[in-house]
Each structure stands twice: as structure tokens, then as C-alpha cells.
Amino acid sequence: MKGNVGIVIVSHSADVARGTALMVEQMVGREVPLGWCGGDPDGGLGTSVEAILAAIDKAWSEQGVAILVDLGGAETNSEMAIEMLPESRRSRVVVCNAPVVEGAVMAATEAASGAPLDVVRRTAEELTPA
């Protein structure tokens, strides 16, 4: 075991991302590596590949990272960011098809139990603990 799966929150809004991160921390404290970002490169609503890459780096775990996204552009930019990762990391980062707030809290709670990446993802997507 090399630590818990990391969680990344990607929203169009920095406020939503930060608020979601606070809810995750309230649930799991600092047991789960956490990264978040929101807003376009100018600080407006949107998402930034550069910021997503930084958030993945912050939440990096050898166990992998699960990304929770809000709307379309967040997903497309997250998938692009994953492709831009070094090859050794690429296969260990997934985007979860789940609502960002509920998904992040569920995923982090599962991750805090030491569950592997595929289980964390499934829990987020089904919104039910494994």
C-alpha cells in the first residue's frame, strides 16, 4: 500500500471547487491527497488545462487520482490534461462520471478507506459505498 487514491475537483467556478474541497476535507480530513481548481486562465468562469495539471500534481498518489468534474468543458479539459501527463502516470488518472459535489465527497470517503482507484471511481459514479 502506497497511500490513498487522490481526488481532484474541477469546476468552472473557483468558488464551487473550493467549497467542494472544504466539504471533502470536513469528511476525510487530510487522509486523502486533494487538489482542486476552477476558473479559466483569466479568472473568469471556465476551466484550464494548466490548472488541472497542477491540481493532479498536488493530489498525486501512486494509487492514482480520481477527477470529479462539473460541466462539459471541465471533462474535455480534464481528459486533455490526462493525455498530457507523463506516460507513467496517464493510466492512473480517471475522470468519474458523477456529480461534482456528491461524487467528490463519496469518492474521497471511499479513498480514505484505502480502496483502489477503480473502486473509488465506481463509488463516485454509483453514489453508493462499495
Binding site: D40, P41, D42, G44, G46, T47, S48, V49, E50, G72, G73, T76, N77, E79, M80, M84
Partner: peptide
């Protein structure tokens, strides 16, 4: 990809 900040960034990128 790095600068657009919406889905059009990765798409046109």
C-alpha cells in the same frame, strides 16, 4: 489547449 479555458481549447487544440 493551455490558454483557451473552455471545451473549444482541447477541441481546436
Amino acid at each position: 489547449v493551455m490558454k483557451v479555458g473552455g471545451a473549444s481549447g482541447p477541441l481546436y487544440g
